[in-house]
């Protein structure tokens, strides 16, 4: 059940310039899954709206959520100034995450670009856990491809616990020079399914790649949001078919997504 609740900051540190790693204690953590997000409210009331931030890790046993976010404006700048013990209001858990049942027995490529990398960690972790519970034939192969700006490869060590990690960097300082698609080409990576989160040009390239390879790509979209619960119709994406809820070619990213099958959306 979604709710607005208070969250206590358990820890916060900077992972790279402008990138912060925050653990929050909140009772909604038990409901959180890979690909979902929460709304985080600034305490400064001149900035009213909840900031949608994806879940990097969820630890139900500790009622804790890990958020790794980039400072992009006033709200996230405020969050970055908080320390252990400070409190924030959060709204969640929001959206539909990745459907792990669709990934059983497949070679799954988890692709993250920049601040789209954090949700890939929880996804890798959940796939890794699912693999323990299923038959050999249903185990997924976890292939992780992540793209950074430079050598500040945040979350790389965490990701390596769950699968083989390929890296691309824009400046060529680590791994393949370029983006995740360059890394896929250089390393000849083959997959049966893709799960991705990252900037729109990357998601467009992945949608095209998946269509050429005839494999499903589950992509996580981003848009400016107000309510986060499907009421305001602020965050829509164009859909190929008429959407079941809106009855026009628009789906709500916050509630019908943020994860969509790439072929279903016009991006």
């Amino acid at each position: 059940m979604k709710k607005k609740t208070s969250a206590k900051i358990l820890s916060q540190k900077s992972l790279a310039p402008g990138i912060y790693d925050m653990w929050l204690e909140c009772d909604i953590a038990k409901d959180a899954h890979a690909g979902q997000f929460i709304g985080v409210y600034p305490n400064d009331k001149s900035t009213l709206l909840p900031r949608p931030i994806s879940i990097c890790e969820a630890d139900a046993s500790k009622s804790a959520l890990r958020l790794v976010y980039r400072v992009a404006g006033k709200g996230t700048a405020e969050f970055s100034r908080y320390n252990e013990g400070d409190c924030l209001d959060v709204l969640g858990v929001l959206g539909n995450g990745y459907d792990l049942s669709l990934l059983k027995g497949k070679r799954v490529m988890l692709m993250g670009g920049g601040i789209g990398i954090p949700p890939m960690l929880e996804l890798a972790k959940e796939l890794f856990e699912q693999n323990k519970a299923v038959t050999d034939g249903e185990k997924a192969e976890i292939i992780i491809v992540v793209g950074y700006r430079d050598s500040k490869t945040f979350l790389k060590e965490d990701l390596e616990k769950y699968g083989k990690v390929y890296i691309a960097s824009e400046d060529g300082s680590v791994g393949t020079k370029g983006n995740v698609m360059n890394a896929v080409a250089e390393e000849n990576i083959e997959a049966d399914a893709i799960c991705a989160c990252g900037p729109m040009p990357m998601l467009r390239a992945i949608k095209k790649f998946a269509e050429e390879k005839n494999i499903p790509a589950y992509i996580s979209l981003e848009e400016h949001m107000a309510c986060g619960v499907g009421a305001c119709l602020g965050c829509v994406v164009k859909t190929k078919e008429v959407d079941h809820h809106s009855h026009v070619n628009n789906a709500r990213i916050c509630t019908d997504g943020p994860v969509f099958l790439a072929e279903d959306v016009e991006i």
């Binding site: 848009e223 400016h224 107000a226 305001c232 119709l233 965050c235 829509v236 026009v248």
Partner: peptide
């Protein structure tokens, strides 16, 4: 269908 995004 409403307007293009960003809408808010």
């Amino acid at each position: 269908p409403g307007n293009p995004t960003p809408r808010v």
